[in-house]
């Protein structure tokens, strides 16, 4: 267990270190705009075509509202935690790679759901925006990430037990 925790911290620190090397401009104009904001705007248009929404750099705009995605709000934290946990857990390399790929997809999907949800809260239920943004959403994302990791880590044990 202690070996796992030490490896987990080291991998997480390495990922965070790499994350901070990425220039702000690149994150804002390429990753956040194309990968998060534009996709979020498309999802909102799909759900509510009557709501005017525009993706501008790292900001999701609708009328006077502007939701800005910055470092720490991009789902990278949850993805790094999952990748670090999967990389540190004893398993075959192929399982780790598959687990990490699914973890990235999961973190991305959860973050998009969070962003779209926050958009609707900000436009329709404004008093709930702040509690969900800083409290409920992060804890839910981490709880779901833990569930995924537990499922990934213990799936072979369950399979062996079933045989």
């Amino acid at each position: 267990m202690l070996r796992f925790l030490v490896a987990f911290v080291c991998v997480y620190a390495a990922l965070e270190g790499l994350y901070f090397i990425v220039p702000d401009d690149f994150l804002r104009d390429v990753v956040y705009h194309c990968g998060i904001i534009a996709v979020g705007a498309d999802i909102i248009r799909l759900i509510t075509p009557e709501v005017p929404v525009a993706a501008s750099a790292n900001v999701l705009r609708s009328g006077a509202l502007g939701l800005e995605v910055v470092r720490g709000c991009d789902g990278a934290g949850a993805a790094f935690l999952l990748i670090a946990a999967i990389a540190s857990y004893p398993a075959r390399l192929s399982r780790k790679l598959l687990g990490a790929a699914v973890a990235i997809a999961l973190a991305y999907a959860l973050n998009e759901i969070r962003l779209v949800g926050l958009f609707y809260l900000a436009t329709r239920h404004e008093p709930w925006f702040l509690p969900v943004h800083i409290y409920f959403a992060p804890t839910l994302v981490i709880a779901l990430s833990c569930v995924y990791f537990a499922w990934w880590a213990f799936a072979p044990v369950r399979r062996r037990a079933a045989v």
Partner: peptide, 21 residues
């Protein structure tokens, strides 16, 4: 900055298994 960019999540996630140990 570390706390804001994931440390607030990492520290309790480390503390939990340590409590179990």
């Amino acid at each position: 900055i570390f706390c804001e960019s994931g440390g607030l999540w990492l520290l309790p996630l480390l503390a939990a298994p340590l409590c179990a140990v």
